[in-house]
Amino acid sequence: MTGLQLLQEVRADARLKGTPFIMITAESKTENVVAAKQAGVSNYIVKPFNAETLREKIEKVLDNA
């Protein structure tokens, strides 16, 4: 199962659809980001990443939750 497929499964589950979901991935093409956004991703981090970026995205997602 890919990360995108997991996201789709999570969003399809009524108990989990509101769960914040951040993708951390090496996929960096536009179509990858668009597909994730359309599937309901909360935020998208591309590898390689650092802890500061991760912290910033988590805070942003929680602020919007």
Binding site: A26, E27, S28, K29, T30, V33, V34, K37, N43, Y44, I45, V46, K47, F49, T53
Partner: peptide
């Protein structure tokens, strides 16, 4: 088309943040 892209084809985090 699958997996990590070469530097010329890849978006960085700033580009991705703008797209989102």
């Amino acid at each position: 088309a699958v997996g990590p892209q070469l530097p010329g084809n890849a978006m960085d985090q700033t580009d991705i943040d703008k797209l989102l």
